[in-house]
Nucleic acid binder design. Structure first.
Length: 649
DNA sequence: CGTAAGCC
């Protein structure tokens, strides 16, 4: 049944798809007699409250320009789907979106968060009488299944897995569907040493390009500077005059010799010190070094530790948002578009160092290596035991596992806490075991709790009372780290509880614009390097020092930031942060919370990343009952299924 | 079954 004109119009106006029309104005339309598209005229719009001729004219042209989205809203309503989807349809498929969707409604599956049932509903609305056995459906589902797999980090899926999934969605002939999807080009067959697998073409191409770049860089490399003869060392000491041990020294030598090499190891083993030495020696040899990392926080830390410029990989490669201005001046921004730096215009530096490489997904790695000309030396630095990348792939682990590039693994701990309970626990978890904690000096404390509410209670107790009292570590130096945002032991609830004790609101609420009080701990959730005076990076934790005149001043440790306007949306309370966001930061004392409802997402990298954030004290609050050992022994360490190792070999 | 970077 066709929804009536005014129903479509109302849904369209309420869904934010009409640029310039806010909620208030949308609510006032009906009263002004604007109920269908035919009612939208300059004079009718000008009769709205606070709308003059100029604004009315702008609203009218925005309405006309939004016609493609409007038509899709009608179709979506007919299918019983959310009108909001229309905006993303136009973004992805362009102004001809309606036509494309009517030709093949299952293209809707290309939008994230759309279910197969949603796409089927759209198909029934767009093409009455359509059969579920339609070839377009089967073909689209092949790509969709692989996209689901990629959300878990895999770039490959076995034929068996894809076939089973297709059957579960009532695709009668999976083999034919797969053949059709391959024919269409979105999917390709990849044979690995183990299995016949399928991959989305974009990821297979990325992994192939990484492998060929590695070979190209390896073949083209020429020695930089001179390989140093072994330095004289004091008897019994394995430290050279630069303060590097022999293993660290070999990593520097690898980087000066090979086109691509890897430096890996846990926290405190001297990866950064090694990179800093490489930078110094390269500069001494008259060679330039580019320092980069996947995240702003990691780049900022790298810059501090090496006392040199560092930036995100995106920025280094000159990410080029494709800002199509469509016919009516509506900006469409697409950041997946491409990079200024590539084979045609490679990076200028002789050596490229990329830190925190565990966060590299296949597409970013491919882009990075593409931008390295023959003769460039790339040093890949990271800890493959930490959380894997958000995007698909496991570039660092595959480079290490391929045995085709030189790898140096640092294992000696050099921090003062070396040999302490945190370090022992980290080393054990890193290799997959969880020994009973033996820490009479209370460097590591295990706090069992029953249920997530009790977890939350224990966290507040530890941070506001036990740790400051018993260990003389003030709350300001304690960081809570949890796997989740939601739930009683997620960041939202914990921050509310911690604020109530540590920094209750001073003025009655209604002070105005700000969610923050002086003394609040905050964490950045996006990069704002432009904020004066020094900018801040995602994941940085700071304290609010001043709230005034619509400006929140935060002391981030790396310096103060005066935050106002849109940037304010990118800080939140930060007494408790997620493990993911804590990656790349360390704190004097850390409380790791493992609530029962996070059990399903527990993984070895998650636990390892969480507990290695702690420098001097670690409390683990676990809600898995007396079965902690059991829970952690069973931590699954499911490697991602990828093609890179096969392509490299 | 929930986490989550980067870019204008």
């Amino acid at each position: 049944m066709q929804p009536s004109d005014d129903r479509v119009f109302a849904a369209f106006c309420a869904s934010g798809l009409w640029p310039g029309l806010g909620i208030t104005l949308a609510g006032a339309l009906a009263e002004a007699g604007i109920r269908t598209p035919g009612d939208v005229t300059t004079s009718a719009l000008a009769s709205l409250p606070k709308v003059g001729q100029l604004r009315a004219g702008r609203l009218l042209s925005a309405f006309i320009a939004a016609q493609p989205a409007y038509d899709i809203v009608a179709l979506l309503l007919q299918a019983g789907l959310a009108p909001r989807l229309a905006g993303r349809c136009v973004e992805i498929f362009g102004p001809g979106a309606l036509r494309l969707l009517k030709d093949d409604p299952w293209r809707l599956l290309q939008l994230s968060g759309v279910s197969v049932a949603d796409a089927d509903a759209l198909a029934r609305a767009a093409l009455p009488g359509i059969l579920p056995s339609d070839d377009r459906r089967s073909r689209a589902l092949v790509g969709w299944v692989l996209t689901q797999v990629a959300r878990d980090g895999d770039t490959l899926a076995t034929l068996e897995r894809v076939t089973d999934d297709l059957l579960s969605y009532r695709v009668a002939d999976p083999q034919a569907a797969i053949a059709a999807a391959c024919e269409a080009g979105a999917v390709e067959a990849v044979s690995t040493v183990l299995d016949s697998t399928l991959a989305l073409t974009r990821y297979a191409e990325a992994e192939r390009e990484i492998a060929s770049s590695v070979h190209r860089l390896t073949d083209a490399a020429k020695q930089i500077g001179q390989v140093r003869p072994a330095r004289r060392r004091k008897a019994g000491e394995d430290i050279d005059p630069d303060g590097l041990d022999s293993v660290q020294r070999s990593a520097v030598d690898n980087a000066l010799t090979h086109g691509l090499s890897v430096l890996t190891g846990g926290p405190g083993t001297g990866k950064s010190r090694t990179v800093a030495t490489l930078v110094r020696e390269a500069e001494r040899a008259g060679k330039s070094v580019a320092l980069a990392a996947p995240t702003g926080r990691a780049a900022k830390r790298l810059a501090e530790l090496c006392d040199a410029e560092a930036m995100t990989i995106h920025r280094m490669l000159g990410v080029q948002p494709r800002s199509d201005t469509d016919d009516d001046g509506n900006a469409r921004v697409d950041f997946s578009a491409g990079f200024a730096r590539g084979a045609d215009w490679p990076l200028d530096q002789d050596i490229v160092v990329v830190d925190e490489a565990s966060m590299l997904d296949v597409e970013l790695a491919a882009a990075l290596l593409r931008a390295c000309a023959d003769g460039t030396h790339v040093l890949v630095v990271g800890d493959s035991a930490q959380l894997p990348s958000i995007g698909p792939g496991q570039v660092l682990a595959d480079l290490i596992g391929s045995n085709t590039v030189p790898v140096v693994e640092l294992t000696t701990l050099y921090r003062q806490e070396a040999g302490g309970a945190i370090a022992r626990l980290a080393t054990a978890v890193r290799s997959g075991s969880l020994p009973a904690v033996d820490s009479p000096e209370r460097e590591v404390v295990i706090v069992p709790a029953r249920g997530s509410a009790e977890c939350a209670h224990r966290v507040v107790q530890l941070m506001t009372d036990s740790i400051p009292r018993a260990l003389e570590i003030p709350a300001e130096q304690i960081q809570v780290v949890t796997p989740v945002h939601r739930g009683p032991a997620g960041t939202l609830a914990l921050n509310a509880a911690l604020k109530a004790v540590l920094n209750p609101p001073k003025a009655p609420s209604g002070k105005g614009f700000s969610r923050f009080d002086e003394g609040d701990r905050v964490v950045a959730t996006a990069n704002h390097l432009e904020v004066s005076p020094t900018g801040f990076a995602n994941g940085e934790v700071g304290v609010v020092t001043k709230v005034a005149d619509k400006v929140v001043t935060v002391d981030f440790g790396s310096g103060p930031a005066e935050i106002s306007g849109k940037a304010l949306a990118d800080i939140t309370h930060g007494w408790a942060i997620t493990v993911h966001r804590a990656q790349g930061s360390e704190f004097r004392a850390v409380i790791v919370v493992l609530p029962p409802e996070a059990g399903r997402m527990l993984s070895r990298p998650l636990v390892y990343t969480g507990l290695t954030r702690a420098q001097r004290h670690l409390s683990i609050v676990h809600g898995t009952g007396p079965a902690l050992a059991h829970a952690v022994h069973d931590i699954r360490n499911k490697p991602r299924r990828t093609a890179l190792r096969d392509f490299l070999g």
